[in-house]
């Protein structure tokens, strides 16, 4: 069942309280982030309907927003999502090679997830780290000044954490 826990509900209430009375819809973006983090890293129709109910808005208002913004995943994704920037400034510093290297190493193309469900490779547009290119986003944080060696180390690190958590 898709339902927020007590602590998640407290956070939900904190988010809604930031806006004027009757403007609870304003909390939609942060609440969707909360829902995505709470329910497996993606937004199912069920999750979105639940958010609509909590915010007392029509489900379509949630779908419209969830599909507009690129950070909401509408399908399940790998446990570790490598979002590699490919826009001009990163391209100038070799982001294409990094994307190719990751793809080769994990045997996936951009947009795909490894068979074990551990890694997803995604190409994205500028993330505001152009001076530290090439770079990628991994979870909440950025990994910058990427080299092949760094990519190797990151993949190892992910595999280790995944193994430790199992």
């Amino acid at each position: 069942m898709t339902k927020f826990s007590e602590t998640q509900l407290t956070e939900f209430n904190r988010l809604v309280a930031r806006y004027p009375e009757g403007k609870q819809k304003s909390a939609l973006l942060p609440v969707l982030h909360l829902a995505q983090d709470s329910f497996g890293g993606w937004l199912s129709s069920e999750t979105m309907d639940y958010v609509a109910e909590l915010l007392r808005i029509a489900p379509i208002e949630v779908y419209e927003v969830a599909t507009f913004y690129s950070m909401y995943n509408l399908k399940p994704v790998g446990k570790y999502m490598f979002e590699v920037c490919q826009t001009g400034p990163c391209m100038l510093r070799g982001s294409d090679d990094i994307v190719a290297y990751i793809g080769e190493k994990l045997s996936i193309k951009p947009g795909e997830t490894t068979a074990d469900g551990l890694f997803t490779l995604k190409t994205v547009e500028c993330l505001g780290a152009c001076g530290y290119a090439p770079m990628m986003q991994l979870g909440k944080h950025y990994r910058e000044h990427l080299t092949k060696e760094k990519v190797d180390a990151i993949i190892d690190e992910c595999r280790k954490t995944a193994a430790a958590n199992n």
């Binding site: 129709s45 029509a58 379509i60 208002e61 779908y63 419209e64 599909t67 507009f68």
Partner: peptide, 20 residues
């Protein structure tokens, strides 16, 4: 009374639909 359809996605992929 209640809107069931809207514009999903963005840019040149925007479309009229209800999700389910």
């Amino acid at each position: 009374a209640k809107r069931e359809h809207g514009i999903l996605d963005r840019g040149d992929h925007s479309e009229i639909a209800t999700m389910i």
